[in-house]
């Protein structure tokens, strides 16, 4: 039972990684792509960590994965802020639906 829940969680995580990568490919500019990267990957990694936690041999491995997840969240959110700021500084025009 736990094995199947774990598989479902990891598959859900993989789905969000795939959706995030699809966004990076399909979205029209750097700003919109950053949305896809930070948000979808954060959630995808969260599900993968949850799924793997159910299979972990010891609780310290679970702690380690949660630590990695939180570091990825902080690094991802901060890096996307800096990339977006750099893009604005160099006057990269944001894509608009109609203009």
């Amino acid at each position: 039972m736990i094995g199947w829940i774990s598989i479902a969680l990891i598959a859900t995580g993989a789905f969000f990684f795939m959706a995030g990568s699809t966004g990076v490919l399909r979205f029209p500019d750097v700003y919109t792509r950053l949305h896809a990267l930070t948000k979808a990957d954060n959630l995808g990694l969260g599900f993968v960590v949850l799924g793997l936690s159910l299979r972990a041999d010891s609780w310290i491995v679970v702690l380690k994965m949660l630590l990695i997840w939180s570091l990825v969240i902080v690094a991802g959110a901060t890096a996307s802020h800096l990339v977006a700021e750099a893009a604005r500084m160099s006057n990269v025009p944001p894509w608009r639906k109609r203009s």
């Binding site: 789905f15 969000f16 959706a19 995030g20 699809t22 966004g23 399909r26 979205f27 949305h35 896809a36 948000k39 979808a40 954060n42 959630l43 995808g44």
Partner: peptide
């Protein structure tokens, strides 16, 4: 947030 942006991407 993750669901929202994933749906928009797909």
């Amino acid at each position: 947030g993750g669901i929202d942006v994933s749906m928009r991407a797909i």
